[in-house]
Structure formats: structure tokens, C-alpha cells
């Protein structure tokens, strides 16, 4: 299968800091490729280099088997970008927004009109074509942001956190749209802070940390890499008085994270070490009231936490 995107030793330096460090990656035709990394991991820098917003310090980016440094126009014609920050003009109608951006890709006249209408219909904004985005909800703006990226029918679409800050209904709409786009033959690179989204729609995933890809594969392949780790979640009445450092000192514990919102502690520990009783004793001795204890099957979140030592949303 053809590589729609290929990174070969891609590097980006800011002074002495390597934001992207010798990264190599292949995204195949027809994939929805999840690109995961916590803040500062290097995924936005990578996306910005692929979308020509930043110049690489080294390495090569190939789109549809052509080096984008030498075939910039070809690469751009086949690329659609859904930036993390909304990239629409509030003082232009939805139709004008999509029409302006699609026009930059050489579409004119009736073909342009047709494509714009198609894109707006795809994201469910046909009835809002003449409305100004300043009157739109967050979800509608996100959908318009997508429409602006797809009207020219690119082969590769990069979606950088397209569901940030929107209601569940709009989020579901967008996820359905991503699948539909993929079914029409588009290859999609998808980044998100919501692990469940990635788990739901992505066929292959790369985990980025410190500018490097530290794991890559299907969900199943990634989960299979951590058979030696067990994932324990302990629900507490309150987190007041919790001393993570004491828990961390218990043998076998690899990663410990405190889930503030859920009043819970999540622990990745060596599967071979039986330390659950010690963990519970430590908590009870510290005056903590335990509400629930569960040992979970590894999820992508577990994989991410185990590999990077951080939550995706850190």
C-alpha cells in the first residue's frame, strides 16, 4: 500500500532544543492515523512542518511519495489542514469562508460552488451557508473549520484536536464525519487529547514523546506491549492527605497518577509483583477512605501512561 505521508529523520531545533528529534514515520493510504503525545511532545511541531508552517531543521517529508521541499505545490494541493485553533473568518459567511479557501486551490466558477455546497453539507451546515460564524456555537465553528479543509478534496487531511471544547453532540458528529471522510478514500492523521476518541476511530497509532516516536502500531499491538504491567484504579472519598511519594516507594510500582476530577489514584505496576495489599495498607494508614478498587485490562491510556510516565492531558 502506498505511503500518503512519510517522515524520514525529521528534525526541528529551536536553539539547542530538539522539538522533533530524527522522527521517521509512515502513514499508509486509507488509514486514520492517531498521533498521540502530551503537550510539548512534538506533535504540533511535526504537523506544522508537514503543513509548511515551519521549516524542518533536517530530514525529509514526503507526501504521496514526493519530497515536499521540491514539490511544494503538489504536496499542498493534496493536503487539507484542520488546525487546532479555529482558522475561519468571523466576518465572512460560512459559504464565503469555504469558498475563499477552496478558491486558493484553483477551484473556480460552478465547480467551486458545487464543492463548497458539498463540504458544507458534509459537516451539516448547509442551512447556515449565509450565516456568519460569529453567531455559531463552538461545535458549528469546529465543523466549519473542517469544511474549509475538505472542499478541495485532499488525499491527506491532518486534524489537530478537532473536538476541543465542544458539546458531545457536535463531537459525535465530527467523529462520524471523520469516518465518512475516510470511507471516501481520505487518509486522516488525527490528534486528540481524548484517548477514547483515538481508540474509537484510529486504525493505527504513534505515540510521541520528547520529539521521538516511542511506540507505533495498531491498538492491539500497542496494548500487547505492556503485558508485564497491571493497571490498578483506586477510588477514594477525598484526595486530601494523600501522599503519592509514599505510595511510589512501594516495590513494583512504575507509574502513579492522581485523577483529581474522579478522586482516584491510578497505578501501573509490575504484573509479577503482588503489592496490592501493601498499597491499600499504605492508604488506610494514611487516613484515606477507600471507595473502590479495580484492576483494569490495559487500555491505550495505560499504554500511554506506561510509556511516557504522563497522562495524555498533562
Amino acid at each position: 500500500m502506498m505511503n500518503v505521508l512519510e517522515l524520514r529523520g525529521l528534525t526541528k531545533k529551536f536553539g539547542d532544543f530538539f522539538a522533533v528529534d530524527n522522527m521517521s514515520l509512515q502513514v499508509r493510504e486509507g488509514e486514520i492515523f492517531g498521533f498521540l503525545g502530551s503537550n510539548g511532545a512534538g506533535k504540533s511541531t511535526t504537523i506544522n512542518m508537514v503543513s509548511s508552517l515551519l521549516r524542518p531543521s533536517g530530514g525529509e517529508i514526503r507526501i504521496l511519495d514526493r519530497d515536499i521541499a521540491k514539490h511544494s505545490r503538489f504536496a499542498k494541493m493534496n493536503l487539507g489542514i484542520v488546525p487546532q485553533d479555529l482558522a475561519i473568518y468571523e466576518d465572512m459567511t460560512a459559504f464565503e469562508n469555504v469558498s475563499f479557501f477552496a478558491g486558493l486551490y484553483g477551484l473556480r466558477g460552478s465547480e467551486l460552488k458545487e464543492r463548497v455546497e458539498e463540504a458544507l453539507e458534509f459537516v451539516g451546515l448547509s442551512d447556515k451557508a449565509k450565516s456568519f460564524p460569529k453567531n455559531f456555537s463552538g461545535g458549528m465553528k469546529r465543523r466549519l473549520n473542517i469544511a474549509c479543509a475538505i472542499a478541495h478534496k485532499p488525499k491527506l487531511i491532518i486534524m489537530d484536536e478537532p473536538t476541543v471544547g465542544i458539546d458531545p453532540q457536535s463531537r459525535n458528529y465530527i467523529l462520524t464525519s471523520v469516518r465518512k471522510l475516510n470511507e471516501t478514500g481520505c487518509t486522516i492523521i488525527y490528534t486528540s487529547h481524548y484517548m477514547e476518541e483515538v481508540e474509537e476511530i484510529c486504525s493505527r497509532i504513534a505515540i510521541v514523546d520528547h520529539g521521538k516516536i516511542i511506540a507505533e502500531g495498531t491498538k492491539e499491538q500497542l496494548k500487547a506491549t505492556i503485558t508485564d504491567v497491571k493497571d490498578i484504579r483506586i477510588g477514594l472519598k477525598t484526595l486530601d492527605g494523600l501522599e503519592p511519594a509514599l505510595l511510589q516507594s512501594i516495590p513494583g510500582i512504575r507509574v502513579l497518577s492522581v485523577q483529581q476530577d474522579e478522586h482516584a489514584v491510578r497505578i501501573q505496576s509490575d504484573a509479577a509483583v503482588d503489592n496490592l495489599s501493601k498499597i491499600l495498607k499504605q492508604l488506610i494508614d494514611g487516613g484515606m477512605e477507600i471507595r473502590s478498587v479495580a484492576e483494569q485490562a490495559p487500555t491505550l491510556e495505560t499504554v500511554f501512561l506506561t510509556l511516557t510516565g504522563r497522562n495524555l492531558r498533562d
Binding site: 506544522n48 503543513s51 509548511s52 508552517l53 511544494s72 505545490r73 499542498k76 494541493m77 493536503l79 489542514i81 488546525p83 485553533d85 479555529l86 482558522a87 475561519i88 473568518y89 468571523e90 479557501f101 486558493l104 486551490y105 484553483g106 474549509c148 479543509a149
Partner: peptide, 13 residues
């Protein structure tokens, strides 16, 4: 400021 610089930079213009 409007974030559209990213889209313009990515377009074949």
C-alpha cells in the same frame, strides 16, 4: 490572531 495564517501557509499560494 485569527489562526488563519496556518491555513494560508498550508494552501498552494
Amino acid at each position: 490572531v485569527r489562526g488563519t495564517a496556518a491555513r494560508l501557509a498550508a494552501a498552494p499560494v
